[in-house]
Design a protein around this nucleic acid. Structure first.
Lengths: 149, 149
DNA sequence: CCTTGTTAGTTACATTTTCAACTGTTATCC
DNA sequence: GGATAACAGTTGAAAATGTAACTAACAAGG
């Protein structure tokens, strides 16, 4: 089985590839929960969590924080509103702007998923040393914020 | 801005979320190259690299190695064949099986992108210590192979 | 052989995502 | 004030993905 180039390069070592594999694998379990329990997509879960964690926000603010395109936000917000999980309030000053926040139902879903997220993450972290975790977070954050310029 | 729950939880610390952000950010630059230079998608790039690195393979083998669904492979292979980058050869023993390998054009695209991948990765790694890199790879590989069971 | 089950790969359809154009509103600058 | 640009958010069409059903070929047990 002839190799075409340098035999010491492994796809599994190529960082973007490896990161994607790890990200996908580590999202899967949590995805199953919000999907099966609330019929949510990744986008919807993210909007829900942003509102749950940081309180009332506008669509644009969520987009900036989550690095999500505005059309994704728009559709996620529409879905969550449909399911009575969030409420929109027009801004008094600027009529282009809408403030978003969670309804009771939204908060309840958020709290439920929040617990799931924590215990799910605990499982992921299980078997990782303190050092590994600190190192991982530092490096990942640096990578994640590379395009901020 | 009232927080709904425990204020010390940050979405940026939630591992699946952080991993996805890092994976996306770190794929972007390379994606631009294979997209603009060869009109490829992620799936196509992956198939190309598997064949470039590991030689002739069947679609199923690529699927197993890359953890890609067979429909993705099927479509990526069709696209690459269309662009004369790969060749299919029916297996002599088992007529369900097709062997895939790169044409001259495929190899040339692969070699080009391989160089891009290496220098791109070098940029990503730049500013990372040896320890950080080793730690990162170890942990990511562990996470990536969680669902192997 | 011949039924039943499994495997390799493709196709069809529904769901998501992306991209560009759109509406309505505010800001700028002459 | 009135043109023009910029911004918040939505919509529609095209591309990509996921899921299930499909074709064709092999395998195993009777």
């Amino acid at each position: 089985m002839a190799r075409t180039t340098t035999p010491d390069f492994e796809l599994q070592n190529f960082l973007p590839y490896l990161l994607n594999q790890a990200a996908e694998a580590s999202s899967l379990g949590f995805q199953n929960v919000y999907k099966e329990r609330y019929g949510m997509l990744r986008t919807e879960w993210r909007v829900l969590f942003h509102l749950g964690l940081y309180g009332r926000l506008t669509a644009t603010e969520i987009g900036t924080r989550a690095r999500m395109h505005k059309t994704k936000i728009s559709r996620a917000v529409a879905k969550l509103e449909e399911r009575r999980m969030l409420r929109r309030t027009p801004d008094a000053e600027d009529r282009r702007v809408e403030w978003l926040d969670l309804t009771m139902q939204g908060k309840s879903a958020y709290r439920d998923l929040f617990k799931v997220a924590q215990s799910y993450e605990a499982d992921l972290l299980n078997g990782m040393t303190e050092d590994e975790l600190r190192c991982l977070r530092t490096v990942l954050r640096r990578l994640a914020s590379m395009d901020e310029n």
